[in-house]
Amino acid sequence: MKHYEVEILDAKTREKLCFLDKVEPHATIAEIKNLFTKTHPQWYPARQSLRLDPKGKSLKDEDVLQKLPVGTTATLYFRDLGAQISWVTVFLTEYAGPLFIYLLFYFRVPFIYGHKYDFTSSRHTVVHLACICHSFHYIKRLLETLFVHRFSHGTMPLRNIFKNCTYYWGFAAWMAYYINHPLYTPPTYGAQQVKLALAIFVICQLGNFSIHMALRDLRPAGSKTRKIPYPTKNPFTWLFLLVSCPNYTYEVGSWIGFAIMTQCLPVALFSLVGFTQMTIWAKGKHRSYLKEFRDYPPLRMPIIPFLL
């Protein structure tokens, strides 16, 4: 059985960083990364991007050496992705923050609204209902991160945790300040508006959870398998008939419901920014589905049925 020789060059300087002799033909890129780490321990596998061309796409960890368009002496180019952190850690951090930050404003801890309001309670029912909904949303997200989601990528750049936390924590503080303010004004149409908004919120939260469970069942634990998601017997998953990412559709719907319930401008802005970002993600995933699966359902749109 022939063996391969693998040289790894710096993608920027073309400097030879490592030479691997007698590499098995069936070795994966993940195994080559581990061998590279032995000579350069500062670059652990998650930091490494190996590619066939200095400006090309990163090879997948599961790619097999003998199936790549290389000879028995293969040249790979290395790029440092920077310090990495696990997706689970990032999600837990960015979701735990809003949960606790919101509660600080809800309980009106000292130095927020003035001494005479310390630890007082709002007289408006919608304020307490909003706290329950907000807390439920982020507790749900935390539990899904721990027990439901299966991540195709193990890590992301460390800098992302600061960007994500600034976004989630900042908006949580902004909306919580106004919703729990002693001078907060309840919704214009009173109980009817709150009940309608609560119904929207609850339905969308159930829908979002149902989609996450359906997506989880598509991917076996520990794998990166991708399949076309289809509706199940659960009615909340029937939205798969019309959109590629109904989890985002339901998520946006939840925040629209919360915005109607609280009639709070920061919540509306958070919903708008979230919708914009999720639309970008949904379009990317939709394109990926179309590219990977020739039999992908043609009627589906990325996030909004028939429109977007």
Score class of each variant (00 low, 15 high):
Tyr4Glu: 02
Val6Ile: 00
Glu7Pro: 00
Glu7Lys: 13
Glu7Arg: 09
Glu7Trp: 00
Asp10Asn: 12
Asp10Arg: 03
Ala11Cys: 04
Lys12Trp: 13
Lys12Pro: 15
Lys12Ala: 13
Thr13Phe: 06
Arg14Ser: 09
Glu15Asp: 11
Lys16Glu: 08
Lys16Pro: 06
Lys16Ser: 07
Lys16Ile: 08
Lys16Met: 02
Leu17Trp: 13
Leu17Val: 14
Phe19Asp: 11
Phe19Gly: 05
Phe19Ser: 10
Leu20Glu: 05
Asp21His: 02
Lys22Thr: 08
Val23Gln: 00
Val23Ala: 10
Glu24Phe: 13
Pro25Arg: 02
His26Lys: 04
Ala27Gly: 06
Thr28Gln: 15
Thr28Val: 10
Thr28Phe: 01
Ile29Lys: 02
Ile29Cys: 12
Ile29Phe: 06
Lys33Leu: 08
Lys33Met: 03
Asn34Arg: 13
Asn34Met: 05
Thr37Ile: 10
His40Lys: 03
Gln42His: 09
Trp43Leu: 10
Tyr44Leu: 07
Pro45Trp: 01
Ala46Gly: 13
Ala46Tyr: 13
Arg47Gly: 15
Gln48Pro: 12
Gln48Ile: 01
Ser49Ala: 14
Ser49Thr: 05
Ser49His: 12
Leu50Gly: 05
Leu50Met: 13
Leu50Cys: 11
Arg51Leu: 08
Arg51Thr: 15
Arg51Ser: 05
Arg51Tyr: 04
Arg51Gly: 07
Asp53Gly: 10
Pro54His: 00
Lys55Arg: 09
Lys55Gln: 13
Lys55Thr: 07
Gly56Glu: 00
Lys57Gly: 08
Leu59Ser: 05
Lys60Gln: 10
Lys60Tyr: 07
Glu62Trp: 00
Glu62Lys: 12
Asp63Ala: 07
Leu65Val: 08
Leu65Met: 04
Leu65Pro: 09
Gln66Pro: 08
Lys67Asn: 12
Leu68Val: 07
Pro69Asn: 12
Pro69Ser: 09
Gly71Ser: 11
Gly71Cys: 10
Gly71Ile: 00
Thr72Leu: 00
Thr72Ala: 10
Ala74Asp: 01
Thr75Leu: 02
Thr75Val: 08
Thr75Gly: 05
Leu76Gln: 06
Tyr77Lys: 15
Arg79Pro: 09
Leu81Phe: 06
Leu81Pro: 08
Gly82Val: 07
Ile85Val: 12
Val88Ala: 11
Thr89Ser: 07
Phe91Ser: 04
Phe91Val: 03
Leu92His: 01
Thr93Trp: 01
Ala96Pro: 12
Ala96Thr: 10
Pro98Asn: 14
Pro98His: 03
Leu99Gln: 11
Phe100Cys: 14
Phe100Val: 10
Ile101Glu: 05
Ile101Pro: 04
Tyr102Val: 03
Leu103Met: 05
Leu104Cys: 02
Leu104Phe: 06
Tyr106Pro: 00
Val109Glu: 09
Phe111Leu: 11
Phe111Thr: 00
Phe111Trp: 06
Tyr113Arg: 14
Gly114Glu: 05
Gly114Ile: 09
Arg123Gln: 09
Arg123Glu: 14
His124Leu: 12
Thr125Glu: 12
Thr125Asp: 13
Thr125Ser: 10
Val127Met: 07
Ala130Gly: 14
Ala130Val: 06
Cys131Ile: 01
Cys131Thr: 13
Cys133Ser: 11
His134Gly: 06
Ser135Ile: 04
Ser135Asn: 02
His137Gln: 10
Tyr138Trp: 10
Ile139Val: 12
Arg141Pro: 02
Leu142Gln: 13
Leu142Ile: 04
Glu144Gly: 02
Thr145Glu: 04
Leu146Gly: 13
Leu146His: 14
His149Met: 05
His149Phe: 04
Arg150Val: 00
Arg150Lys: 05
Arg150Tyr: 15
Ser152Thr: 06
Gly154His: 05
Leu158Pro: 04
Asn160Val: 15
Ile161Thr: 09
Asn164Lys: 03
Thr166Ile: 11
Tyr168His: 03
Tyr168Asp: 00
Gly170Glu: 10
Gly170Tyr: 00
Gly170Trp: 14
Gly170Ser: 11
Ala172Lys: 02
Met175Val: 10
Ala176Cys: 13
Ala176Leu: 03
Tyr178Lys: 01
Tyr178Leu: 06
Tyr178Ala: 05
His181Cys: 14
Pro182Phe: 02
Leu183Tyr: 15
Leu183Phe: 10
Pro186Phe: 14
Pro186Arg: 09
Pro187Phe: 06
Pro187Gly: 14
Pro187Ala: 05
Tyr189Ala: 01
Tyr189Pro: 13
Gly190Ser: 12
Ala191Arg: 05
Gln192Glu: 13
Gln193Glu: 04
Gln193Trp: 00
Lys195Arg: 11
Ala197Tyr: 00
Ala199Asn: 15
Ile200Arg: 01
Phe201Met: 11
Ile203Gly: 14
Ile203Asn: 02
Cys204Val: 15
Gln205Leu: 08
Phe209Ala: 01
Phe209Arg: 15
Phe209Asn: 06
Ser210Arg: 03
His212Gly: 02
Leu215Arg: 00
Pro220His: 04
Pro220Tyr: 15
Ala221Pro: 10
Gly222Pro: 00
Gly222Ser: 03
Lys224Asn: 11
Lys224Thr: 05
Lys224Gly: 00
Lys224Pro: 13
Thr225Trp: 01
Pro229Ile: 07
Pro229Arg: 13
Tyr230Met: 07
Pro231Phe: 01
Thr232Ile: 07
Asn234His: 10
Asn234Arg: 01
Pro235Phe: 00
Pro235Ser: 06
Thr237Gln: 15
Leu239Cys: 03
Phe240His: 15
Leu241Pro: 11
Val243Ile: 15
Cys245Ile: 15
Asn247Ser: 10
Asn247Pro: 13
Glu251Pro: 02
Glu251Arg: 15
Ser254Arg: 07
Ser254His: 10
Phe258Lys: 00
Ala259Ser: 06
Ala259Pro: 04
Met261Val: 07
Met261Gly: 06
Thr262Glu: 01
Gln263His: 08
Cys264Arg: 07
Val267Pro: 14
Val267Arg: 04
Val267Glu: 06
Ala268Glu: 02
Leu269Met: 07
Phe270Tyr: 11
Ser271Ala: 12
Thr276Pro: 08
Met278Ser: 00
Thr279Phe: 03
Ile280Ser: 04
Trp281Gly: 03
Lys283Glu: 12
Lys285Asp: 13
Lys285Asn: 09
Lys285Met: 07
His286Leu: 08
Ser288Ile: 09
Ser288Gly: 11
Tyr289Cys: 08
Leu290Pro: 06
Lys291Ile: 00
Lys291Ser: 11
Lys291Phe: 12
Glu292Gly: 08
Phe293Val: 13
Arg294Trp: 06
Arg294Pro: 11
Arg294Met: 11
Tyr296Asp: 03
Pro297Met: 00
Leu299Gln: 13
Pro302Ala: 09
Ile303Arg: 02
Ile304Ala: 07
Ile304Cys: 13
Ile304Leu: 10
Pro305Thr: 03
Phe306Tyr: 09
